[in-house]
Amino acid sequence: MSSTVHTVLGPVAADELGVVALHESLLSVVPGAEYAYDIEIDRADVFETIAAKLRAFKAAGGGTVVDSIGMFHGRDVRLYENLSRATGVHIVASTGMGPEEQLGGYFLTPQTNPPTPWPAEKFADLFGREVTEGMVVPRVERRGSAGFVTTTVTAGGPTLTDESLLRGVARTAIATGVPASIRFGADAVADLDVVLAEGVAAERVLVGGLDRRDAVGAPQAVAERGAYVGIDHVGSTDDAHLSDAERADLVAELAAAGHAARVILSSSATGAAFGHAGNDLPYETVLTSFAPLLEARGLTASDVRTIVIDNPRDLLAGR
């Protein structure tokens, strides 16, 4: 294992990451919203809004936030660099895209003769370059290395393009050493198996969204395969996801089954959102509100440290 992780300010020793909020977003913009007549994105206000949330996270004991939105939903590498410098919070940015319905037209346009969806190797090349050469700042430059590669599968199950994305993400993880994150569509285990079929080690894969109500049985199955279980809507109170009490029960069940070292917790919080409502939870929600629920269910301080520090560190550290 390498001892460093790609952050927007360069390599950082994995042991210096501290508590990691692994599945969050900093600036979240629905593609095209930046051009809407009724939406104003004031860069100074955006900076101050997100910086205040990062400082609160750091004050609560946080060390690192992973912006897991991928390439085209507001990712702003220069902004993230400045936020990291101003707040002292490490920021890891991600490459990747998906699901198919959220891809821009270029990535849906058949590029072959006869026409077929983008093949996995094209996505792997696109994402891999963002790790090895730097993330693209449109029409200007490459800047900083992505430390995470991610995709989301269509809710009803993978389309042909989604499958190419899953395989492209897996190949990127193999070629570059960064971890792969997949947010499952209809069947978490089936989507994970597509990734594993490419040869990526299960311990380099995070399956997100496993606190969805329709993920019954999937967290245990994913952990048994050796992948990480993403319970990533901590603090949310919507019908599609478990309540925090139910989430805590799930984590306790996984720990009792010997899978504490495969649990990743986060809140899918947004720092600033445009074109959609966003998820205005504090980045420190896991630390301040959820950890006490785990301790009330018998998890030790060591168990909690494993989940909030050791697991994300081990996942992010390049192989």
Rank of each mutant, 00 (worst) to 15 (best):
R143C: 09
R143E: 08
W118S: 02
E224T: 11
T150K: 15
G258K: 04
G168R: 03
V136T: 15
V140E: 15
T112Q: 14
E101K: 14
P158C: 12
E34G: 13
G271V: 09
T154I: 05
P282K: 04
E121P: 05
E130R: 02
G177H: 11
P117K: 03
E163D: 14
V8K: 01
R142L: 08
P119C: 04
I309A: 06
D67V: 04
T109E: 10
L281G: 01
I69F: 06
L108E: 10
H241A: 06
V136S: 10
P219F: 10
G278Q: 05
V46Q: 08
D238H: 12
V286S: 04
I41K: 09
T64Y: 01
A155L: 14
M97C: 12
V12M: 06
L166C: 03
V200K: 00
E40L: 14
V286P: 02
L17F: 08
H276W: 14
R319D: 13
D232R: 01
A120L: 09
D244H: 11
R85W: 09
A86Y: 07
S28M: 12
G32I: 02
P119G: 04
E198Q: 09
L126K: 07
A197S: 05
H73C: 06
E163I: 14
V169P: 00
A272G: 10
H23Q: 12
A120Q: 09
D15Y: 06
E24H: 05
G157S: 10
I69W: 01
D187E: 13
R204Y: 05
A190F: 09
S289Q: 14
V20Q: 00
T150G: 03
D42Y: 10
A301C: 07
V263R: 05
A86D: 14
G208V: 00
V308Q: 02
V12L: 13
S243V: 06
R78M: 13
E34P: 05
D244Q: 10
A269T: 03
R143W: 09
V234H: 04
L54G: 07
L54Y: 00
L287V: 10
T172E: 08
D303N: 11
T176C: 12
D125N: 13
F274Q: 09
G98V: 07
G157H: 08
R75D: 08
A51W: 03
L22I: 15
W118G: 00
V29E: 06
E133N: 12
V136E: 14
P282Y: 07
R171I: 01
G88I: 11
L254W: 04
E34K: 12
E253Q: 14
H276R: 13
K58P: 07
V20M: 02
H233A: 12
L17M: 11
A255K: 04
D314M: 13
S267P: 05
D42F: 11
V149R: 01
V30P: 05
G298K: 07
A256D: 15
G208C: 08
I91Y: 02
T112W: 07
G104P: 00
L103R: 03
I182N: 03
H73D: 01
G226N: 09
R129W: 11
V195R: 00
E101D: 13
V169I: 14
V216P: 03
S3N: 14
T159P: 01
V19E: 01
A51E: 10
R143Y: 10
